[in-house]
Computed example of a mutant assay.
Amino acid sequence: MRRWTRGRGLRAGLKGWGGVGAMAVVCALALTFALLLPLIPSGGDGSTGTGGPGLAYGSRARAEGGCTTDEMAKAPEKQTLSPSGADGPTIEAIKNREGEKRKLIVGVDQNSYRWGYRDPNSGQDAALEGFDIDLVHRIAEDILGDPNAVQFKAIPTDQRIPAIKDGRVDMVVRTMTINCTRLADVAFSAPYFKTGQQVLAPKSSAITGYDGSLAKQRICTAKGSTANTTLVEGQKSGKLVSSADLSTTVPNQLDCLVRLQLGEVDAVVTDGALAASQAAQDPTVELKGEPFTAEYYGVAMKKDADDLVRRVNQVLVDYRQDTANGWQASYGRWLSATLGKDPKAAEPPTPAEYLRKS
């Protein structure tokens, strides 16, 4: 296979489950890419003894702020505006940027294999590629008439919402789960992908999934991730065994895989779609058990950017209908190798429901 992945490269350098020097190199490279990314124009994110698949959204309290009724809490992915192709103040401000600044500014990941990552074999620029990146290009093409009119910004998991609220980005397209907590701070598009939280651990591990085998195990999650919130809430409610160690949190999901490779943690919990990509990077790890939540990724934007939310929802409608160059083609290109050739389990609901009125 032409594509080189950081996980495999790291594995070859570590030659086992140790290697502090290799870890330092990885951290240095990650920092370098994070510092450089905002300057490079487009060139082209829970475990218990009793839990199981189908953990309901209703288990999250309405007091989280973004959902004011039980019905909303059960389906936060429906709390978005209906599609529209019309311009509005947010879109006009983007279009009025001049010269080289006339770009859509988007927060993305650069370390999630097959979602948003840099391929060293793609040329001198090591262009960003992946499922999320394809969607960004489609949105830019619709709004600005040029799929490459994008300024990508590397955003750590815990900085996705601050980056939107502070106006550093127009939107975040970064495997971001729609939930009630986040709806209090940002607006979401309709869902563009369905997934669920899952456990990743070495193949040799006795861990069997989201169950009692996580007792006394060190679990890594990303700060600000749905996985971290779900595990913390699970431990408070007794759904997660109390002896599970949740103290290891990192800025980005790939850091969890590195910690797992170094033997500093026993398991990783993240979205199953991301976990599958991490397993593809390292053949010594695997998914353990079935997903224990059902959730959806959405494009996140400012709460008052109604015209942009509606426009992105229109793009998503068109993207789903375009079987030649849209959602299905992107799934086949990036995700079929890790999630299977049939995309039905990952497809968001069709037709989407738009229950937010203002």
Rank of each mutant, 00 (worst) to 15 (best):
K216F: 14
F33S: 07
K101Q: 10
D70T: 14
P120V: 00
S204T: 12
P291E: 10
L231H: 14
K236A: 15
D322F: 08
G107T: 04
K153V: 15
D166T: 04
E77L: 02
T69C: 14
T270F: 11
V25T: 08
G272N: 04
A126C: 12
L287K: 09
F131H: 09
T177N: 09
A86T: 07
D125T: 09
K357F: 11
K357I: 12
K341Y: 02
G99M: 06
T68L: 14
Y296S: 11
A294Q: 15
Q124V: 14
I133R: 00
T230G: 11
E286Q: 12
G18I: 02
G272D: 01
K15W: 13
R310D: 00
K302M: 12
R2F: 06
E286D: 14
A75S: 15
R259P: 02
W334A: 02
F193I: 07
G88I: 01
D271R: 01
V108Y: 00
D125P: 03
L10F: 12
N228Q: 09
T157I: 15
P351A: 09
A329F: 06
I139E: 05
V199L: 01
Q235D: 09
D109F: 06
R310A: 00
G107A: 13
V268D: 05
Q197M: 11
K344C: 10
S243V: 12
I139G: 00
E347S: 12
V268F: 03
S358H: 06
F188T: 04
A346S: 15
K302N: 11
N121E: 10
G16H: 08
S243I: 08
G65P: 13
Q124Y: 13
F152Y: 15
Y192P: 11
T249S: 13
G43R: 09
L257V: 06
Q261K: 08
T226L: 04
A222D: 07
T181F: 06
D322C: 08
R259A: 05
Y57L: 06
Q197L: 12
Y113V: 13
G289L: 00
S213P: 09
A163N: 12
P53L: 06
G21E: 05
G332D: 06
I143C: 01
D132E: 02
P162T: 06
V232A: 15
R174A: 13
T80Y: 01
I94M: 13
T68A: 14
L104V: 02
A294T: 15
Q281H: 05
P83D: 00
I94A: 02
E286H: 12
A61I: 03
D109Y: 11
S122R: 08
G19K: 00
A56N: 07
R60G: 05
S59K: 07
L37V: 14
R6T: 10
T249N: 01
T226G: 08
G85V: 03
D306I: 02
V268M: 04
R311T: 00
G272T: 02
S112W: 08
V258L: 12
Q124N: 11
S213C: 13
P156N: 11
E264L: 12
E129C: 08
I207D: 02
V26P: 01
A75W: 06
S47M: 11
C256I: 04
L104H: 07
L81D: 00
A127D: 09
K303D: 04
Q124G: 08
L308K: 00
G43L: 07
E77T: 04
E353M: 09
L339D: 06
A190P: 04
Q159F: 05
L246A: 15
